[in-house]
Design a protein around this nucleic acid. Sequence first.
DNA 1: CCTTTTCATTGGGATGCCCAACGTTTTCCG
DNA 2: CGGAAAACGTTGGGCATCCCAATGAAAAGG
Lengths: 173, 173
Amino acid sequence: MPNVFRYPRPMSPDPRQPGAQRPDPQHPDPQHPGALAHLQSLPSWLAGRVAARGRALVAEAIATEGLKLQHYAVLANVADDGPLAQADLVRRLGFDPKDVVLLLNHLEHEGLVVREPDPRDRRKNAVTATPEGRRLLHTCARLADRANEHLLAPLDPAERRTLLALLTRLAQD
Amino acid sequence: MPNVFRYPRPMSPDPRQPGAQRPDPQHPDPQHPGALAHLQSLPSWLAGRVAARGRALVAEAIATEGLKLQHYAVLANVADDGPLAQADLVRRLGFDPKDVVLLLNHLEHEGLVVREPDPRDRRKNAVTATPEGRRLLHTCARLADRANEHLLAPLDPAERRTLLALLTRLAQD
DNA sequence: CCTTTTCATTGGGATGCCCAACGTTTTCCG
DNA sequence: CGGAAAACGTTGGGCATCCCAATGAAAAGG
């Protein structure tokens, strides 16, 4: 179960010498089809590059509020569907239980969530969002929107809708 | 400089209880706009999810040849533009020098590349692809193509071209 | 000719993902 | 009803990836 919060990096666009002819990934030279050009024209590679840039932009934006992407994801889950057990978060997010402990420690320390024993099941902690957490969640949502507008800046509104529709179809399965 | 080879994982599509109503990310309920639904409708999140799945598919496919995505990327760079110095690969791929050493150790051990002192500059190793390496590169390219066809299976040919065009524009900047 | 830069190797560290164990609590089954 | 199994949270260990840097040798620059 891959994790979009840890973001790996794509190769630089084309690290060849300045002025070196850069193959058009859409129309590779059939006489000299490059393995590198082919790799860089794969949808998975292109999506990876866009995703890496998108995550970097969002991560940078919400870092101004002292949060990481993972914190944002935890907070969103808890605010919408809380109270949630830590094991719920582990399942929902696909995170390591240890990492969820660390994330919650930070969120709790910042007063954004509250972790309390579940009165119905003493094995569990019930995690809920505080008003401050909800407030910050709105701020993060706005920051994330702006980062995504930056990401999609080269596209016009119709192209953005098209891209979103196609990605949404591929993202669910 | 983010790296698309290490692939993080998106949240599961929607981990709510079976039967729980799942918000349509394209048309969030304006009465009850969820933070989670909002996060999951961001282009960066959607691209991350598609990218994670794409990379997982490609990684799984080329693993049958004993390679990782990073090996494939190194091999493609070396085959097209070799001989390359290790420092060239570090710059091109954005990898840690230590990781490039490990990757080349494996590729060399498998007879896919040759690492020789550069006669013109004894600081450098000249890395070149062997015929066996080029052969395997073709195999990996075919495997990667099939994995990407699998990734894009829900789209018809016109939609695939549209997606590719939009991603290509976003991927270069 | 000396200083600076580059190269490859390697050290250390942080983070995220994999595995598992432990004690407590709850659920399940005979 | 009681014991076994499962769930929960915490924590340990380990590996891979990304960050930092140091070292000695070689090349470039002033």
